[in-house]
């Protein structure tokens, strides 16, 4: 019993100190916040707008990061494949355009047009959403599943395991995650890591 008391004391201290530090963002199973952000098509977009969606593929991405650029076609392909199945792509541009001018709204509009984005490309105005999610880099994906409690985080990480060559990909992490959700299976790799560009706040 003595041990257990001591452990609870440790837990209390850890929790207290945890609350005094900056939140490190979502873990698998957390409920993700909704938002209302301006899209490159001139509308405002919230997750709650998507009444029929089963969930979302939220991707923090931008114009300027070479890794994001390398993945643009694959992000479009993801949206085309999964929008009809209830998991649309929602792209959020998390950089501060004062710091990274080529990521301003005008540049976002241009990019969305030239690459034929089939999904909303949203400006995280004031850079409020990426810190809540805990995104640190672009590109970074959060797969959310709609539940009675809200949009639950089911996958965090990379799109796949080869940024350089789409044809040499061995593990399509995001597709595997969404496929698992669609068939009610466990996600085998709920968290993966890849190199990315630090988000410019």
């Amino acid at each position: 019993m003595k041990h257990i008391k001591g452990i609870f004391a440790v837990i209390a201290i850890v929790m207290l100190s945890a609350f005094t530090t900056v939140s490190s963002g979502y873990k698998i199973g957390d409920i993700a916040t909704d938002f209302k952000l301006k899209s490159s098509d001139g509308t405002s977009v919230s997750l709650s707008d998507y009444k029929d969606a089963k969930g979302f593929i939220v991707i923090f991405t931008c114009n300027t990061c070479p890794y994001s650029v390398a993945y643009e076609d694959r992000i479009v392909a993801l949206d085309k494949k999964y929008k009809g199945k209830g998991y649309p792509v929602i792209a959020i541009m998390p950089n501060n355009p004062d710091v990274q001018p080529q990521d301003n709204m005008e540049a976002m509009i241009q990019r969305a047009k030239s690459k034929g984005f089939t999904f909303p490309y949203l400006m995280d105005e004031g850079q409020k959403i990426s810190p809540q999610y805990g995104a640190t880099k672009t590109p970074e994906v959060y797969v959310l599943q709609k539940t009675s409690k809200g949009n639950q985080v089911k996958y965090i990480g990379a799109i796949d395991d080869n940024y350089q060559d789409a044809s040499a990909v061995k593990s399509k992490y995001v597709e595997n995650a969404v496929d698992a959700l669609l068939s009610g299976q466990q996600i085998k790799e709920p968290q993966t890591r890849a190199i990315g560009c630090s988000i410019k706040l």
């Binding site: 640190t136 880099k137 990379a158 395991d161 040499a168 890849a194 190199i195 990315g196 630090s198 988000i199």
Partner: peptide, 18 residues
């Protein structure tokens, strides 16, 4: 390419941002 292996091997806390 296997950053999912080597990023956490270099440090478990590394998100992958540089």
């Amino acid at each position: 390419n296997d950053s999912n292996t080597w990023i956490p091997a270099i440090n478990p806390d590394w998100s992958g941002a540089i």
